[in-house]
Structures are given as structure tokens and as C-alpha cells.
Design a protein around this nucleic acid. Structure first.
Length: 743
DNA sequence: TCTCTCACTTC
DNA sequence: TGAAGTGAGAG
């Protein structure tokens, strides 16, 4: 092994792993933690967020060019490739995941009825600079885990399609192509890792996860409030950010306003986060949890639903004495009269209702049981629209999305929780345009009627709720439908990490190294809760880094508190630099994990930035690069592989590198083809040629896309950057006394 | 569209 | 008691 490989091997060491390997000098570690380190490898996400020219020959050519450039430059970047060298693997032996998964996890979405209600209207989630929680909260119940085994539970939110939306005429409709994706993060449940028994004991809530649109830095570094920090982990990042409130660690996932997203839940059987990259991810998607991110609510019905169900919005309820009502009373005499008329009844009806309780199910006809999931259905079409033409097509999408609800009369009307005054309020506070919304004006009757209807609806919705729960919804289990048909939105290339099966309801998707079924669902970036740190014994490292001062800054006293649960020591608290402190971990991890976010038609999330670099590096590996190039030339290996698989389970290893395919490609067919083509698949523990291929396709080509005429040059330049970085690390390592290069 | 402040709520 | 989470509404 060449020296560089050793260096890279050291880099592969996870900064949060304790104890720090002898061959990984803290100086190098700190260097890696320097904010400047990461950017050096990064490309502007926007640049990468472009469709790949062609996953086939073009990719191969670009990869070849990169390889040539690398060779010419004499760069020692092989170790930065996607596959850890054998020695490296040996050194990480202890990090290998459990061998076979003997458990059979089942995941159920909590408050499904509530989600369903929102889903029918096209759920909106407010995103703010400081971050907003999801509502309804994403909460799942897990069963079937090995009680003794430890698991890491994660969640991420990925783009559901590559469209941008607008709310027009009370409907959500496609408004064009999606903006470049924001840096993606994976949120590791703060209790991770914990035993199966612990996870199964109670619902697993991800309510701490916050949604934000706050990225002040395109590289994803500054997207944290003052005092925040990011941990780059394996090419992605272990992203944490500190809220401005000392002592509070918060996690944020960056979303684009007016874009649709799909939360995903992952179960990883691993007792250490270090094993994450080598472990099998089982991913669960609940179609009813998709939503459109907004900075301000668009759909009054959603607003009202939230107000009615979110405890924190109680002040806005009709029954409350919140400002909203008070204001109204001051400004709207007619409403005041109306409310006086309704109040007693409303009070009676709601006084006891827990705001957290699932709201009544609504509009039976729109129930998922009777029709394809709106999400699935519409997404496919929307996708077509997006791909072909971003011209909005007013009716279709929203109809599909909202089902009968928006199509004819407001769902709220016939079904349920619409509050009596909602329409009036809407008119009052919304622009004239909104007031004209057909659905609203058509559906809302006179006060009296509304009132009566509401009563009926109240009664009805209970029934419906029961029915829904008991009938078409597979009560209790497997709420998610993932299907094999290409109509599946997730399968249509938008949520590449998923495998779809007609009978696989909301069940897991394994990404497969061995099976050769890459599950491209693993974001390379993670956000973690404090608990996770402690559990993983990373506290001391954080402290070290922070204390080391170098790149560190962890954020002040708050840091300590925040990580406190995480065992962050005094050292960390001592570091009060508010600057972000990215930790660069390992290129190969990056390669494997960094790609995974869904990339629509080549819209690469941040991690791809790394990939580009890694890809170039990978090309320096003669053996693998050749194979990769060949594979790339062969074409269509794509992230849709998983789709082609009818097998209910796909073993997924984050080391798999996804490849993008033209948006128009049929996932199903591509997947099938791909499956065949990669039949020679590798074992999940071994480096597979696929990653290389992926790297080329994802990395090199994208570079090519950036600068079609100078991809080789760029690659060379990129590689030189890498070389500088690597040599920098090497130097630091060399300077570090008492450190022997592992051989 | 987005950001900020506000009054209100929960915890 | 106060931090934090809400939507409204102004700008």
C-alpha cells in the first residue's frame, strides 16, 4: 500500500469513533475539521445540480479523462476512492456490521389518520430560518426487532420529485422544474443506538427534527445558526446545528420552499455509528407523509387542520381566546356575531379534544383504500409534466393530490374538521385571489349550514376514522405502499433509494451490495441528536476537536449542554467559537454515503459534491476504473436498480453508489435491465464495481456537465485539490510524533 | 415569497 | 417561570 493509501485510511477513521486510532494524528484530524478543508473538495451544489449529460459513454469518457488527468498529475488519490483498501477494511474489521439480519422489523406510522387527512390536502410544512417542526409529527412504531441487538434509527427527507409547485386556485400545481436541491442530511434519532427492545417499547418520534430553508452558504456550511456546527461524516456530514439558544442542540434539514418532499425512515442494525456505512439500511416510506415545504401556508385548509390539531396553535382555534379570535372580534363584527352563535357548540365539541389526537378521518371516498395513493398517482404524472414541460396543468395534479376533496367540494366540507369560521377567516385574511377559490366558495355554506354540517361531520368522521383504520388501511401495520409499478412516485427515480413491491406495504428496502441491488437511499449527511453522540462515545472527540481549537468551535456553552447528553465534556464547553466545525471523515465513506440523496435527473444534493471529487480520485484506480468505465459505457446502470427487484428485501449498503438516469427512464425497465447487468454483483462487504461506476456516472459526468469542454482539466484541478488535501494530512501525520504508519 | 414580530400556547 | 412552538399579519 502506498503511503497515500495509508493517509486515506486514516481519514477513513471516523472522528467520532473512540478511541482514535493510533495512526490518525490529531493534527490531521483537526486539519480535517477545518472548515476550509471540506470546501476545498466541494463544488458548488448548483453546479452539480444539473442533469447528467449522459450516463453512458459520456460518463465513461469523462471518467476516463479524469483518470488520465489523475495519472498525469501523479496524484495519490486512490485511497479516496469509494472502496477502502483491503488493509483499511481489515483495520475497520471491528466496525463491520452484524452479519445477517435475522430480525424482521415492521414499522407503523403513528397518527396515520392525521397524516391521511393532511395528505389529502397536500400537506404543507412550514419551513423557517430557525427551523420548524413537522406537523403532524413523524412518529413510527417499530416491531420485529431483535430485542438484544442494537439499532440506529434514522430519518431523512428527500425530494419527492423534481418539480416546483405553486398554489393556485386553491390547488397545488406544478410550476416548473425544481430548484437545485439543498444539502441533505440524515437525522439520526438521538436515542441511537439503542436495543431493539428499547425501540419497540414506545413509538419513535422525530419531532426534534426541524425543517429549515436556511442556507446562507451554498456549500452547506453556513446553514447553521450562530453557534451551530456541522460534522461531516464520510463525505456526507453528520450535521448538527446549535440553535441560538444556548444549551440546545437542534437538527435541521434544509428544504426548498414550494417543493415536495418525502420523509423516510431507516433502521440500521448497528451498535455503533461507525458501522453505519457498512450496514444494511432498511428504509420505510409512508406516502401519506409527503408534503410541500412552504414559508407561509398556502392552503387555508391545511392551516386550519394544523390549528385544530397542533397544541401549540391552540391559540388560533375558534374555541380559544387567542389573538386570532380577539383580532377578529375587533375587526369583523359579522364574524363576531357568527362566533357567538357557534361558540357554545364548539366549546362543547372541542374542549376535551386533545390537540394531539389524530384528527378525524375525512372524506371516505378519498381514502387511500379506494384509490391509488394520491402521492403515487400524481407524482408520476407530475413527474411527466416536470420532465416534459413545466407548464402548470392546473387541474390534474391537485385533483390527484387532493382527490375528490379539492376536485369538487372541499374535503373539509364533507368530511370534517373544517372549522366553522375558516372560510370567512380565509377570505378575511387572504388575498382576494384566494378568497375566490372555487373550492372554498363553493363548499362553504352559510354559517348555520356550516355549523350543522360540522356537527354531522364530527359524528361522521369518527365513523370514517374507524372504518378507515379498520378497513382499507391495514390497521397497525405496513401503512406504506411501495409498489413495483412505474407509477410509483418513489420508484420513478425520485426516491431512488427505494425498492417497490406491490405487496410490500411500507416495508423495508434493503440496499444490496451483495444482491447487486443498490438502494440509493442513503444520504451521506446525518444530523444527530445529542444522545447519539453519547451513545457512540463521540463526546470526547468532539471535545478534543473543540478544545484543539483548530477548526473546532463547537458553539459555546450550549454545545456542552447540547452534547451533554452526549457526553461532551468541559473541553467542548470551553470552545465557544460559533463557527461551524465540519469534520471530514473519509472519502470512501463519502463516496458511498454521499450520493444517496435522490437526485432527479441529475440534480445532485450536496454530497455529490464530494462524489465528484471522489469519482475523480476513483478513476485513478486502474483496476476499478477500467471496470467502471466499461460499466459506465454499458450505460443504464441506475439508481433504479432497486426497482427492478421484486424481492421484498434488498440489502443495502451505503457503499453502493447510485447512478443517475435520465428522468424519463422507466425505472422499472431500467431496473430490470440493471438487475441483469449487475447480476455478477458483489457481496455487501466487498467493494463492488458498482460504486466505481456510480462514481463515474455521478461524479465525472457531472463535472463534464459543468464544463463540457474542460472536464479533464477540471478533473485534474479537482484532483490536485485532493492531492493537496491528502498531502496536507500526510504531512500533519508525519509531524505527529509517535505515530506509525500502519502497514 | 419571504422574514420578522407578536400574542398566544404547551410543557 | 420561562423556553419553545404556533399561525397571523405587517412589511
Amino acid at each position: 500500500m502506498r503511503e497515500p493509501a495509508l493517509a486515506a485510511s486514516a481519514m477513513a477513521y471516523h472522528p467520532f469513533h473512540a478511541p482514535r486510532p493510533a495512526d490518525f494524528p490529531m493534527s490531521a484530524f483537526l486539519a480535517a475539521a477545518q472548515p476550509s478543508f471540506f470546501p476545498a473538495l466541494a463544488l458548488p451544489p448548483g453546479a452539480l445540480a444539473k442533469p447528467l449529460p449522459d450516463p453512458g459513454l459520456a460518463g465513461a469518457a469523462a471518467a476516463a479523462a479524469a483518470a488520465a488527468a489523475a495519472a498525469e498529475a501523479g496524484l495519490h488519490v486512490s485511497a479516496l476512492g469509494p472502496h477502502p483498501p483491503a488493509a483499511h477494511l481489515r483495520s475497520l474489521k471491528s466496525l463491520e456490521p452484524e452479519d445477517e439480519v435475522e430480525d424482521d422489523p415492521k414499522v407503523t406510522l403513528e397518527a396515520k389518520e392525521l397524516w391521511d387527512q393532511f395528505h389529502k390536502l397536500g400537506t404543507e410544512m412550514v419551513i423557517t430560518k430557525s427551523g420548524r417542526r413537522m406537523f403532524p409529527p413523524f412518529k413510527v412504531r417499530v416491531s420485529g426487532l431483535d430485542k438484544k441487538a442494537k439499532y440506529i434509527l434514522l430519518m431523512d427527507i428527500v425530494a419527492a420529485d423534481d418539480c416546483r409547485y405553486k398554489f393556485h386556485n386553491s390547488r397545488w400545481m406544478v410550476a416548473g422544474k425544481a430548484d437545485p436541491e439543498m444539502p441533505k442530511r440524515m437525522y439520526i434519532h438521538p436515542d441511537s443506538p439503542a436495543t431493539g427492545e428499547q425501540w419497540m417499547a414506545k413509538p419513535v418520534a422525530f419531532h426534534k427534527l426541524k425543517l429549515t430553508n436556511n442556507i446562507s452558504d451554498k456549500h452547506g456550511f453556513a446553514d447553521v445558526p450562530p453557534g451551530g456546527g456541522s460534522f461531516f461524516f464520510g463525505g456526507g456530514s453528520l450535521h448538527l446545528y446549535l440553535s441560538q439558544a444556548p444549551g440546545k442542540w437542534e437538527r435541521g434539514t434544509i428544504l426548498n420552499s414550494m417543493h415536495k418532499y418525502q420523509p423516510r425512515f431507516h433502521i440500521v442494525r448497528a451498535n455503533d455509528i461507525l458501522k453505519l456505512p457498512y450496514s444494511t439500511f432498511r428504509t420505510y416510506v409512508f406516502p401519506e407523509t409527503d408534503f410541500i415545504a412552504v414559508t407561509a401556508y398556502q392552503n387555508d385548509k391545511i392551516t386550519q387542520l394544523k390549528i385544530d390539531n397542533n397544541p401549540f396553535a391552540k391559540g388560533f382555534r375558534d374555541t380559544g381566546n387567542g389573538r386570532r379570535e380577539k383580532r377578529k372580534q375587533l375587526t369583523l363584527p359579522s364574524l363576531r356575531l357568527y362566533e357567538e352563535h357557534c361558540k357554545p357548540e364548539r366549546d362543547g365539541a372541542e374542549s376535551d379534544a386533545s390537540s394531539c389526537d389524530p384528527a378525524p378521518a375525512r372524506e371516505p371516498p378519498a381514502s387511500p383504500g379506494s384509490a391509488p395513493s394520491p402521492l403515487r398517482l400524481h407524482r408520476t404524472r407530475a413527474e411527466e409534466k416536470c420532465a416534459a414541460d413545466s407548464d402548470p396543468e392546473p387541474e390534474r395534479l391537485s385533483e390527484e393530490r387532493a382527490g375528490p376533496a379539492l376536485g369538487r367540494s372541499p374535503a373539509l366540507d364533507s368530511g370534517s374538521p373544517p372549522r366553522l369560521t375558516e372560510p370567512e377567516r380565509a377570505r378575511e385574511r387572504r388575498s382576494p385571489e384566494r378568497g375566490k377559490e372555487p373550492a372554498e366558495s363553493g363548499g362553504d355554506g352559510p354559517f348555520g349550514l356550516r355549523s350543522l354540517e360540522k356537527e354531522r361531520a364530527e359524528a361522521r368522521r369518527k365513523d370514517d376514522g374507524r372504518k378507515e383504520a379498520g378497513e382499507g388501511k391495514e390497521p397497525g401495520l405496513a401503512p406504506l405502499v411501495v409498489q413495483t409499478d412505474s407509477a410509483s412516485p418513489l420508484g420513478a427515480g425520485h426516491l431512488p433509494g427505494l425498492a417497490f413491491s406491490g405487496h410490500l406495504h411500507g416495508q423495508q428496502f434493503f440496499g444490496p451490495l451483495g444482491a447487486g441491488q443498490p438502494l440509493f437511499l442513503h444520504p451521506g449527511q446525518f444530523a444527530m441528536g445529542p444522545g447519539a453522540f453519547s451513545a457512540m462515545g463521540m463526546g470526547h472527540l468532539l471535545a478534543s476537536v473543540a478544545g484543539g481549537g483548530g477548526g473546532g468551535g463547537g458553539g459555546g456553552p450550549g454545545t456542552a449542554t447540547g452534547l451533554d447528553a452526549g457526553g461532551l465534556g468541559p473541553a467542548a464547553s470551553a470552545a465557544s467559537t460559533p463557527a461551524p466545525f465540519p469534520f471530514h471523515l473519509s472519502q470512501h465513506m463519502l463516496a458511498s454515503q454521499g450520493i444517496p440523496m435522490p437526485t432527479f435527473g441529475g440534480l445532485f444534493p450536496y454530497p455529490y459534491t464530494y462524489m465528484a471529487a471522489a469519482a475523480a480520485a476513483a478513476s485513478a484506480l486502474p483496476a476499478t476504473s477500467a471496470a467502471a468505465a466499461a460499466a459506465a459505457a454499458a450505460g443504464s446502470l441506475s439508481r433504479s436498480h432497486f426497482l427492478g427487484s421484486a424481492r421484498p428485501r434488498l440489502r443495502f449498503s451505503p457503499y453502493q453508489i447510485p447512478v443517475t438516469i435520465p428522468p424519463s427512464t422507466s425505472l422499472l425497465t431500467t431496473g430490470l435491465a440493471a438487475e441483469g447487468s449487475k447480476a455478477a454483483g458483489s457481496n455487501s462487504r466487498e467493494p463492488s464495481p458498482l460504486p466505481e461506476l456510480a462514481l463515474r456516472k455521478v461524479g465525472a459526468p457531472s463535472r463534464g456537465a459543468l464544463s463540457p469542454s474542460g472536464s479533464a482539466k477540471e478533473a485534474a484541478s479537482e484532483l490536485q485539490s485532493i492531492q493537496r488535501l491528502v498531502s496536507g494530512l500526510e504531512n500533519q501525520r508525519a509531524l505527529s510524533p509517535g505515530r506509525e504508519s500502519p502497514k
